[in-house]
């Protein structure tokens, strides 16, 4: 019994982190129909910012989080202007942008690898290796804090989308880009803003990831498939769906890891991605199979 509770708790804690990692990806897909394969490599960049801030100046990753988010959001603006704005009218847009973001992921990996080498890193504030104990069950502090911060950020995002003046056009563009444009929404500006927010969320996620997982530049390939499984299961573009999928799959992966073997734990996400793509491509909350 204790094993089951323990495994579930570890799964849930990781789910919180995965949720934030996937949220930005989902937002960008929803608004722009871009499957941003470079998202995990941008998370990686956020993780390096947190890592070096901690190592050089001893700044807590949770404090550096807004800075990482801001830097990455700025990067997002730049990337949008340089790369994605001109692709918006391309005939084979969705396929083109997948290849482009794939290439961008390689550029990011190459840059990070050149600057920081492929050494494995992890940020180690005190809480990262500490835990709360409740009877026989332990809750790792680092993952708990990361999960809580992550859910806090996602809630703020949801409130922003639902109620703010800028949330309306973002939601409208997500649901029907052409109609939004025809009703006077400047969809290009909305795209720019959502892309910046999405990449900013990658930066924030990176700060959390930096003390939850060990990382090195080429690890982003593994993350991309994990995150895609969340986003696809949740229904492309549905942030709520992504969060729910993050919890479901993380708990599932935790159980597979515990009962079958640690190496098979990640495989859970990959296989889930396959199964969902083929059985229910629109995911849990997708309106229709947008991707197919």
């Amino acid at each position: 019994m204790a094993d089951i509770v323990q495994t579930a708790i570890l799964g849930l804690a990781l789910g919180g982190v995965y949720a934030l990692m996937g949220a930005g990806l989902s937002l960008v897909f929803g608004v722009m129909r871009i499957v941003n394969l470079a998202h995990p490599s941008l998370i990686m960049a956020g993780a390096y910012i947190a890592y070096w801030a901690f190592r050089l100046a001893g700044v807590d990753p949770l404090l550096i989080l807004p800075v990482a988010a801001a830097i990455l959001a700025g990067t997002g603006v730049l990337l949008y202007k340089l790369v994605f704005e001109r692709e918006a009218r391309s005939a084979k847009y969705s396929e083109m942008t997948v290849l482009l973001t794939f290439a961008l992921a390689m550029v990011m990996e190459g840059l990070l690898g050149t600057v920081f080498t492929n050494t494995q890193r992890v940020t180690s504030p005190d809480y990262a290796t500490d835990a709360f104990f409740i009877a026989d069950v332990f809750i790792p502090k680092g993952q708990l804090y990361a999960g809580m911060v992550s859910l806090g950020i996602i809630s703020a995002l949801a409130l922003f989308l639902k109620h703010s003046r800028f949330g309306y056009p973002i939601r409208a563009t997500t649901q029907n880009r052409e109609a939004a444009e025809l009703l006077g929404v400047n969809v290009n500006l909305v795209s720019l803003a959502s892309f910046a927010i999405g990449v900013g969320l990658a930066g924030a996620a990176g700060a959390l990831v930096s003390f939850v997982f060990s990382f090195f530049p080429s690890k982003h390939w593994e993350w991309i498939v994990i995150l895609m499984s969340l986003v696809v299961l949740g229904g492309m573009g549905s942030i709520f769906g992504t969060v729910l999928a993050a919890f479901i799959l993380s708990v599932l992966a935790a159980f597979v890891g515990f009962y079958v073997g640690a190496v098979w734990s990640t495989l859970t996400f990959f296989v889930a991605l396959f199964v969902v793509l083929l059985v229910r491509p629109q995911g849990l909350f997708g309106e229709k199979p947008e991707l197919a």
Binding site: V35, L37, S94, E95, V98, L99, F102, W221, E222, I224, V225, M228, S229, V232, V263, W264, T266, L267, F270, V271, L273, F274, L277, L278, P281, L291, A292
Partner: peptide, 28 residues
């Protein structure tokens, strides 16, 4: 037979997942 049921980005992503799955299988 399985993956060609989806098109565009879905197919691309499924192909990437294939590499990850194969890598884990061969390594173990």
């Amino acid at each position: 037979l399985i993956t060609l049921r989806v098109r565009g980005p879905s197919f691309i992503i499924s192909s990437l997942a294939l590499v990850m799955i194969a890598r884990i299988l061969f390594e173990n």
